[in-house]
């Protein structure tokens, strides 16, 4: 099995719901807590397994905002595992999930240096490296209903931008989506063969605005109200 995620950049709305669901589930999960420092202060910081950035792609008027969630890619050739001196980082043979043994980690940071995707974060409280577990404590939990045996981020995504499955099965959702929507891997030149794939935004029809009437008395009045009311 090669478990991983497919993230649909066409429909992600950048709500950060996946990151919050991840934090909520994993802070009480196998590698929890995901320690926060100064949580209610001026400089709140903490461990997150999932972070969302937003980019502007292209120049106006041919530009587009793309929200970009990133978590561990569970690389096939994971450099973080190769560089780990203690053997705390390992990749499971049966499903390809990359994990950190919290009892073995010495907190040297080298794996986070080796990861191009910023997927690993040091927990200052435990002094150990923490990372996405692909919700290993959910996906194999037989007490949960079958449809809930998915990572928290996938379950919670309101836009259905996240899909979880087995890339070794050519008929799985994730394999089909990657095939049909030209799913791609990030920074392929590193050669780490990330398992997670990203679906590019679809080509969309541009909405023609040239026929919208402008410059009438109504528009001038609206513009004047906007100027007065705004500040």
């Amino acid at each position: 099995m090669k478990l991983g995620l497919v993230i649909d950049l066409d429909v992600c709305v950048g709500c950060h719901g996946c990151a919050v669901a991840c934090k909520q589930w994993n802070t009480s999960g196998t590698t929890g807590p995901l320690t926060d420092t100064d949580a209610y202060g001026a400089e709140p910081s903490g461990v997150w397994f999932n972070r969302i950035r937003s980019y502007e792609v292209g120049d106006y008027p041919h530009n587009k905002t793309v929200h970009f969630p990133m978590s561990c890619m569970h690389c096939e050739d994971a450099a973080c595992v190769t560089v780990c001196p203690t053997g705390a980082s390992w990749k499971r043979q049966e499903d390809g999930i990359v994990l950190v043994d919290q009892d073995k980690c010495m907190g040297c940071n080298l794996c986070s240096w080796a990861c191009p995707y910023g997927a690993r974060e040091l927990d200052p409280a435990s002094g150990t490296m923490k990372k996405c577990t692909l919700c290993i404590d959910r996906i194999y939990d037989e007490r949960l209903p079958v449809e809930e045996r998915q990572p928290a981020c996938v379950l919670t995504c309101p836009a259905h931008a996240r899909h979880f499955g087995d890339f070794d099965d050519p008929e799985s959702d994730v394999s089909r989506l990657t095939r049909e929507r030209s799913g791609y891997a990030l920074m392929p030149e590193m050669g780490y063969k990330p398992t997670n794939k990203y679906l590019p935004p679809r080509q969309k029809r541009t909405v023609d605005t040239s026929d919208v009437a402008r410059g009438g008395v109504r528009d001038k009045l609206k513009a004047w109200v906007n100027r007065v009311v705004a500040r």
């Binding site: 990151a19 400089e43 709140p44 937003s54 980019y55 502007e56 792609v57 292209g58």
Partner: peptide, 30 residues
């Protein structure tokens, strides 16, 4: 290595709009 291969958008200019965090993170500090 460029932001283009990092995000996969290799045929357009890519600019950051939002880092997604308001204060420093482990990644920033390190």
């Amino acid at each position: 290595i460029t932001i283009n291969t990092a995000t996969g958008f290799t045929r357009a200019v890519v600019r950051l709009l939002d880092t997604g965090h308001t204060c420093d993170t482990f990644l920033n500090r390190e």
